[in-house]
Amino acid sequence: MTFHPEIFLQQIINGLVLGSIYALVALGYTMVYGILGLINFAHGEVVMIGALTALSVILALHGAAPDLPAALFILAGTLVAIPVTMALGYTIERVAYRPLRNAPRLAPLITAIGVSIVLQNVALLVWGRSYRSWPPILPTTPHTILGANITDLQIFIVLAAAAIMAGLMLLVNKTKLGRAMRATAENPAVAGLMGVNVNVIISVTFVIGAALGAIAGVMVSANYQIAHYYMGFILGLKAFTAAVLGGIGNLAGAMLGGLLLGLIESLGAGYIGDLTGGFLGSHYQDVFAFFVLIVVLIFRPSGLVGERVAERA
């Protein structure tokens, strides 16, 4: 097997783009987990609703004025999708999680899966069963760097994931709201006694997570140029894996886990077949990714950069 450096570089780029997409979604999981200790399995579906809402707006706008610049379309789509998912995130928390806040930990996990199924079916009713494709607004001519191709959008996705992670870290660690969030995470009862409105803080967390979901949804569907009602399921599962890999509850961990998972998948699919002489093929890329996850969890149960969070009573 001959080694092509430009192919290797392309696989790294593929991995970084895919990883940034996972990271964008994983940030939403990890935020909610960090504050509530709850895995919000419906987050993948929030991403899907964001993507489909934005696509509907973009399609309508493209029908009315097809010559606007691509960035404007995406901006308009995202600006409509964000309030929609924010409202959705708030509603989910209010209806499905708040009544169960003091219930055993498994109960909200089950409702989360229930909410995810409900949202999928709502999307099925609203947007139909078939794949919806993007109008041809994005420039498809890629930049070539040392023989590897990357599009403007892909560069933007990688930068956006990093910027959003940094923004969230600033929010959590440097602002008053962030301090309230950390206090709630530490001990909601005591935080309440200290004058923190715990309900508001938790709602805000969900709403921010959902807004991130909308942005992730737009980026994902723009990258693949399609959106459909089922897209959130696999994406959510992969992002959740990424969050666990990096250390769930830790914002930098979500980013690290996402990038690592993306790289493992793309290098795995690209090279397993040749390295094992055809014994294992590209259908083992998921097996490979989960194998790495298991190994990491055995040696570092709280993830790569996760710290042991104080036990909650």
Binding site: H4, I7, Q10, Q11, N14, G15, V17, L18, Y224, I226, Y230, M231, I234, E265, S266, L267, G268, A269, G270, Y271, G273, G278, G281, S282, H283, Q285
Partner: peptide
């Protein structure tokens, strides 16, 4: 020269396509 696999719900094919490109 290459026998690659994906899934009927997949959306990202860049890794296998890049391998094929090589």
């Amino acid at each position: 020269v290459a026998r690659e696999f994906t899934k009927n719900d997949a959306t990202d094919f860049t890794a296998i396509l890049t391998k094929i490109k090589g």
